[in-house]
Simulated scan of single mutants.
Amino acid sequence: MKIAVLALQGAFIEHEKVLSELGAECIELRNAEDLQQDFDALVLPGGESTVQGKLLRESGMFEPLKERIEAGMPVLATCAGMILLADHIADDDTRHFATIPMTVKRNAYGRQLGSFHAYGELETVGQVPMTFIRAPYVVSVEDGVEMLAQVDGRIVAVRYGNQLALAFHPELDADRQVHSLFTEMVEAYLHGSQQRHSA
């Protein structure tokens, strides 16, 4: 299992450490040439979504990655990554990959709650620690988007097909359940690909 981690900006190294612990091989995506490597899944880390969106386009990686996500490649998106996947950003006309039919609100908790920690129930997983840093949250979702977790009545984790998007940073906590869920998604995707190729 080889997982590509977007390494343009933000907390990408922490994701790599956790995924490596779980037995995955990680590569970093910094420019269009990196896309020539084989990889099975993608991580869009936290950071600044506006900067990441700009660098994705300037590097020539935006369209190829969008095509792979739309084709079903598993993707784990945290914080800024969630914003990149949303097809609508509240009070903002900017659109990035726009592959999950949902509306998100950027920096949704304001300065007073710019960073905070909580425990919440994640569907199919159980209780997980949640570290929020200038986090977004999901305002609304369309048909087909599964709501996985809420904190204080706000949606903070969703799944849409092979896309897993979180408002919090699981890579900053010792709990490995979120990344384990993602690697299980990747394994299922690879198994399905093998079956399709052998059919």
Rank of each mutant, 00 (worst) to 15 (best):
R57C: 00
Q163A: 15
A24N: 09
L19V: 05
A80E: 12
Q195T: 11
Q127F: 00
D143R: 11
G110K: 06
A118S: 15
H96R: 01
E48A: 03
Q150D: 11
Y109K: 04
A157P: 12
V145F: 06
E25A: 09
F132C: 08
N31R: 11
L29W: 08
I83G: 01
I27L: 15
L65C: 02
L8Q: 00
Y189C: 05
R57T: 02
T131K: 08
C26G: 04
V125G: 00
C26A: 10
C79H: 02
T124C: 09
S59I: 03
G126K: 12
Q52C: 01
M82I: 06
R30W: 00
V125M: 06
F39H: 07
Q36I: 00
S198I: 13
L56F: 06
H191Y: 07
F12L: 12
Q37H: 15
A71H: 02
A32D: 13
N31T: 02
S193E: 15
G120W: 10
D38Q: 14
G120M: 15
L181Q: 13
V75W: 05
I89T: 01
A41I: 09
V145L: 10
R159Q: 15
D87Q: 10
P170F: 08
F182I: 10
S140W: 10
P170E: 11
F132S: 03
H191A: 14
G60R: 07
V18M: 14
L166F: 12
L181C: 08
E58D: 13
S140M: 05
S49M: 06
L166G: 00
A135Y: 09
P101E: 06
P45G: 03
L42G: 03
I83D: 01
S59F: 03
R159I: 05
I89W: 03
G114F: 09
R106M: 13
I69W: 07
C79M: 05
M147D: 05
L166P: 01
G120K: 05
L44Y: 05
Q163F: 07
L122M: 12
E58I: 03
L8D: 00
Q9T: 01
R176F: 08
C79T: 01
E33R: 13
P64R: 02
I155K: 04
D143Y: 01
I155Y: 04
A135D: 10
V128T: 04
R30E: 12
V138K: 01
R111W: 07
A77Y: 06
G120C: 15
E21Y: 09
A7Y: 11
P129G: 03
A167G: 11
Q37R: 14
